[in-house]
Amino acid sequence: MTRLLVWLRQFGIYRGAVDLYARSGLFRGLVIAFIPVAWILVLTIAPYAQMVLISFYERYPLPPDQTVEFTFRHYGSFAERPLYLTAFIRSFVFASLMTALTLIVVFPVAYFISKVAPRGQRTRLLLLVIAPFWISEVIRSFAWMIMLSNSGAVNSLIAWLGLSAEPFEMLYTNLSLSIGVLYLTSLYMLLPVYSALEKIDSQLLDAAANLGAPAWKRFTRIILPLARDGIVSGCTLVFLLVIGLYAMPQLLGGPGTTLFAATIGQIFSKAGDSWPQGSAFSLILIGAALGYVGLFTVLFQSRRRRRAS
C-alpha cells in the first residue's frame, strides 16, 4: 500500500489533490461527502425525479413513434373519482390507528427492557425481540395466514377447547391485517422508545417516588416528557411504514381493507399506459404523508429538539 502511495506521488494530479486535501477543509468535506451524496442522488432522488417527470406525461410507456405530451390531468383524476379518496382516507386512518396501537403495545415492552430488567439481561432481551425481524415480511405474513385461516392453529385450538364449532373468520379482515402490521412495525417503535427510556436517569424516578409522587404522576410528569423525542421518532417511522405498505395488506387484508398503496400498485400493474396516473398518485401520497408527519412533529416534538434540528 505504502509503495503504491509513493508511486502515485510521481503524478502531478495526485500530488495536487493530496495537497489540496491537506490545506482545504471544504475540499476534505466534499471528498468525504461525495459517496453518500452521490448514493442519495442516484438511488433516492433520481427515481423520484423520474416519477415526477412521468406523472406529467400524457401516457407512459409510450407506444412506438409517439412523442411526449405533458398534462396535469393525472393529478386531477385523483379528485374526480371519490372512490380513490375513500382508499386514501382509509390509509391515513388505518396508519394513524396502527401507529397509536403499536405505541400502546410496545411502550411497556420497551420500559420493561430499559428500566425493569437487570442491566446484564437487556441486550439479550432486545435480541429476543428483534430475532423475528431476521425473517422477511412476506414469510411472516404467510406464518400469520397459517395461524389465522379457518382451518388454522387458532381456530383449531378454539374447536379443540369446544368453544365454537364454527370457525371464526379472522383471515382477510381488519383483524388479521392489524395483527400482521403490529408485528411488522413493533421493532421500528421499540428501538427509538427504548433508546429514549434508557437515557432517563433512574434516580429521577426514585427521587419523585421518595417525594410522594404516585406511579401515574411519575409516568406523566417524568417518563413521558423525557421519552417524547423517542416516541415522536417511533411514531414517525411507523406511520410512514404503514402508509406505504403493499405486500402485507395484499396477503392478510380483505376486500374491505384496501389501502391507497394497493390502489397505486393496481394502477401500475395494469397492462396499458397508466404509469403517469400511478406516479401522480404516488406523489400525492408521499406529499400528504410527509405533510401529516411534519405537522405531527411540529405539534409533539420537544422545542429543544426542534431548535437543534
Binding site: 385461516s149 382451518s151 388454522g152 382477510y172 380483505g254 376486500p255
Partner: peptide, 23 residues
C-alpha cells in the same frame, strides 16, 4: 355485493390455498 366476498385474489395458488384452508 362486496361484503359477501372473502377475498379478491390474484393468482391461482391463492384460490387453491383458500379452498384448502376452508376460508
Amino acid at each position: 355485493k362486496k361484503p359477501l366476498v372473502r377475498r379478491f385474489y390474484d393468482s391461482g395458488a391463492e384460490v387453491q390455498q383458500m379452498m384448502v384452508n376452508k376460508d
